[in-house]
Structures are given as C-alpha cells and as structure tokens.
Design a binder for these strands. Structure first.
Lengths: 195, 195
DNA sequence: CGTGTCAATTGACACAGTGTCAAGTGATAA
DNA sequence: TTATCACTTGACACTGTGTCAATTGACACG
C-alpha cells in the first residue's frame, strides 16, 4: 500500500498539495486531484485507500518537504523561555500559511472521517508538544505568570495558535503574516510571562 | 416562505434544534430532522428552501428563544471596562454551550454553502460588536494596554472567543464551563488591561 | 518470439445525501 | 359538493466517494 512505484505516488501527493494550495482552503475532489496528477481517478485509488488517506499522506509529505525540525531549531535553541515562546510563534506564523490548504482539507475531512480525525489529532499533538516545551521553558525561568499551571497555560497557548484563529485574523481581519506574528507574540507575552 | 402555518414551521425549527443538540456537533440530515419533526422529509422543503436555510433559521430561532439581550445586560451595565470584559466572557461561556449544536452545524455548512456562510458571518458580526464595545469601554477607562489599538484588540479578543477555541478547550482539554470562563477572563485581562 | 506481470485505463455501478417533481390524500371552509 | 390547502408518497436527478471487472500497453524473462 505504501512502497510500490514511488514515482506515481509522489506525483499524486504533489498534485494533491498543489490542488489544495490553489484552492485556498476550498478543497479539491478526487477527480480534480487525478486530473492535476495527469492520471485517471481510479489510479489514485491504486495508491491511496481513500480521500482521507490521501489527505493524511499529503499532509505528512508536505511536513517532510518543509523541514519542520530545521524551522523549529531557533525556538529550541532560545536562551530564555520568553524567547522560546516568541521563536515558536514566529515558526508557526511562517509555517502555517504554507500548509494551510492541505491542513484545512484534512481538518474538514475530520468531520466525516475517523482516520482523518486521528491523523489530524496526532499532528496537532506534536504541535502541542512544542507549545508545552515553550511554556515549560518559561516556567523553568520562573517567568510563567502565577495564574497559570504549565498544563493550563499549554492548553491556552495552543488554543491561541489554532488554525481557525489564524484563518480569522488573516482572512477576515486582514492581518499580514508579519502582523500576526508580532501581535500573537504580544498576546502570548502579556498572557503568560510574569511581571 | 415565511409566515404560512407557523405551527409546523416552528415544530420543524424546534426539532432541528433538538436534533442538533443531541448530535453534540455531529450534525443531522434532513431526513433525521423530518423524522424528529414527525413529518415527511419533503414537507420540510415546503417551509425551508434548503438545508442551509433551515440551519440559518434554526440558529436565529434559538437566539430569540435564549434572550440574548437579557443575558448581555450585565455586561452592558458594567461600571468599568474590565468588568464589562469579564461579564462579556461570562455571557459567552454560558451562552455558547447552549447554541453549540446548531452553531456547529451552521459553521460546517459554510464550507459548501454561500448562504450559510453569509448568515454565520452576519451573526458573528453581531458578536464582534459586543467584543468591540467591551474593548471600547476598556479604552474609555484608559485601561487598554498600550500595545493595542481598539480595532486590533477587538480582532484578538474576538478571535479568542471563537467556537473552535471553546471546542478545543472544553472537549479536548476538558475545561469545565466555569473553568473556561475563569481562565478566559484571566487571559483577556492579562492581554488587554493595562498595568 | 511468446508469455506473464504489473501499472494504469475505461466504463459501469453502488451508495449516501440533497433537492425536485407530480400525483394523490384528507380535512376544512364556501 | 367542490375548491383549497398542507402534507404525503414515491420516483428521480445530481454530486461525489468508492468498488469492480475487463482491457491496454510496456517491460522483462526464458
């Protein structure tokens, strides 16, 4: 299900990413993706079990392409908790626009598909780890505001960064990528950093 | 389309609300709603143009039932900006669980339906007015933190209160209604109140 | 050269859910 | 008794996902 003829499989994954990016969050049908891949719709099903499977694989594929670890390095290397928080938001603000099309499609598929829900949850769990680490660093500095426990601050911080928030702020409110990063940093700093 | 035989129409609206509440955000089909109403699926279409129309009307109907204005009174009557902010979050934290089923269905319908998107946007615009008023009151007190303009603070405050955030915090993180209200108040206070 | 294998194609089909259409029913009112 | 009105019934079109079976075309091996 996974290794035969890497080429076509990859072609489909790339076409999926392209289609979903072009759609700007509006989604793409199996037929659209097949056309974009230059193969028949049925051939897609030779490589992926279902639409949910395809979206999941495309999401993972894109993650690999975009070198998440490398992009997270500045946050991990930060000297202080506060800097770590800021670098994390910076990472996220730059990363999210690049995965948005695929992420949105996967998010939407959650509503009708178990597997998509599980895949999304798994990825978001990884994201949440980053949030927890940043909050943890803040706490280690003794700089986590006293109203918060590490766990609850992680909940709130992660909630702040959710896709629908970003969607609202950038698409409805017209915040630019830079503004999103700047203001979310202010928000997080005021919310979680003591003093 | 709107006034003939109020009874059946109302019966359908109530059944819609009931179905969507019971589903806990998972949605309901036209057939389910018809069954719940005790009429035929086709009869629903005698009263509502489409699923999107039905969801929209059900959302408005529910809003009427729940006396939004009355519930907002404490916020409007608040003596200080900060209290207004807090009362607003309290209103929202108590209100949202009651409209969640219907709200979620309408939100989901946005993705495929123009009319649903417009209806949702319209309702959220009203919500946003409340946020703006609270932020405005804070500003009038000279208590809006200097990092924010009224407009940008409204964007951020409203984003904080979005349905998916609440969904995440209460359903994934297990925050109770009370905890949601308390912590969101802390969050908003730290984020927007000067000093 | 023939044969088998394997990826992909083609076209038909099942299924769910929304929405439409036309004919029919049954009660109420003129 | 006849017309009207709300509703029912059942059939059907449409979209999109997913399945199935038969076929094509390329490449590899004896």
């Amino acid at each position: 299900m996974s290794s035969e003829n890497i080429d076509t499989r990859t072609k489909i994954l790339q076409a999926t990413v392209r289609s979903l990016e072009q759609s700007g969050g509006r989604g793409a049908r199996m037929g659209d993706i097949a056309k974009e891949s230059g193969i028949s719709r049925q051939a897609v099903y030779l490589h992926f079990e279902s639409r949910a499977d395809l979206l999941t694989q495309a999401f993972l594929y894109l993650g690999d392409q975009l070198d998440v670890d490398g992009r997270l390095a500045p946050s991990r290397a930060a000297a202080t908790g506060q800097e770590r928080l800021e670098r994390y938001i910076e990472f996220w603000g730059n990363f999210l626009p690049e995965i948005y099309g695929v992420a949105k499609a996967l998010m939407m598929a959650r509503d009708t598909d178990e597997a998509a829900a599980a895949a999304w949850k798994d990825r978001m769990e990884a994201m949440r780890h980053g949030c927890r680490a940043a909050i943890g660093a803040l706490h280690a500095d003794g700089a986590l505001a006293e109203e918060w426990t590490r766990s609850k601050a992680t909940d709130a911080f992660f909630a702040m960064l959710q896709v629908p928030n970003w969607e609202y702020l950038t698409q409805e409110c017209g915040w630019s990528k830079k503004e999103y990063i700047r203001r979310m940093s202010v928000l997080a700093k005021r919310s979680f950093v003591a003093g």
